[in-house]
């Protein structure tokens, strides 16, 4: 299987997960935000699917760029520019490398450049950051993803909608961290990391 095929299969599994868990993501966002993270992501991944179904991708760069632009255009919440910037950064990095850990590290850079969140602020960065660390060590397992996701529960939000709640944001999983956890579980399942 060529590299783009594996990545396409990843994105299509991620799309299925988001669609399946749309209500759960909205639920998480209702607790500490405006209740739309599932609907936002659902709109985004459907636009991605429509876009990439039409394409014939030989280059990762073209694939990631189309994914990123579709998300930027269609999501409608903070997760749009954030996930969008991740994939646009990955598109740029893919001109130099097809190593998943370097690509996803570039994705994380795109998110932090756009959202300025550090680890510990109760955002998707709290999943991306440890996952990229494990990827670089070559040890990423589902348990790392679960642990990172769970760690957002006790954090106090200082970025995004949830930050307006202050201490009241403690005790809830961050919705963007949950969608990012789906992104990385499907990365493992789609075999992107296998040689």
């Amino acid at each position: 299987m060529s590299t783009t095929e594996k990545w396409i299969s990843w994105i299509s599994q991620f799309t299925d997960q988001i669609i399946e868990h749309k209500a759960d993501l909205n639920q998480l966002d209702s607790a500490i935000g405006d209740g739309d993270h599932g609907s936002n992501m659902d709109r985004g991944v459907k636009a991605v699917k429509e876009k990439i179904d039409q394409g014939d991708y030989e280059e990762l760069t073209d694939l990631f760029k189309d994914i990123g632009m579709s998300l930027v255009s269609k999501v409608g919440g903070a997760s749009g520019p954030l996930y969008g910037s991740a994939f646009i950064s990955m598109a740029k990095a893919s001109k130099e490398t097809d190593d998943p850990s370097l690509l996803l590290e570039a994705g994380l850079d795109g998110i932090t450049k756009r959202g300025k969140a550090d680890p510990g602020e109760k955002t998707m960065v709290d999943v991306w950051h440890p996952v990229v660390d494990s990827l670089k060590k070559g040890t990423l397992a589902q348990s790392d993803i679960d642990e990172a996701l769970e760690s957002t529960k006790d954090m106090k939000a200082t970025k995004g909608r949830a930050s307006y709640l202050g201490d009241r944001s403690i005790g809830h999983i961050d919705p963007g961290a949950q969608s990012s956890a789906y992104l990385f579980s499907t990365l493992l399942e789609a075999g992107v990391l296998d040689d």
């Binding site: 930027v72 903070a78 997760s79 520019p81 954030l82 969008g84 910037s85 756009r114 959202g115 909608r161």
Partner: peptide, 11 residues
């Protein structure tokens, strides 16, 4: 106003 407004504007 909030969050994504700034990020989309910056882009």
């Amino acid at each position: 106003d909030l969050g994504s407004a700034k990020m989309n504007l910056e882009m």
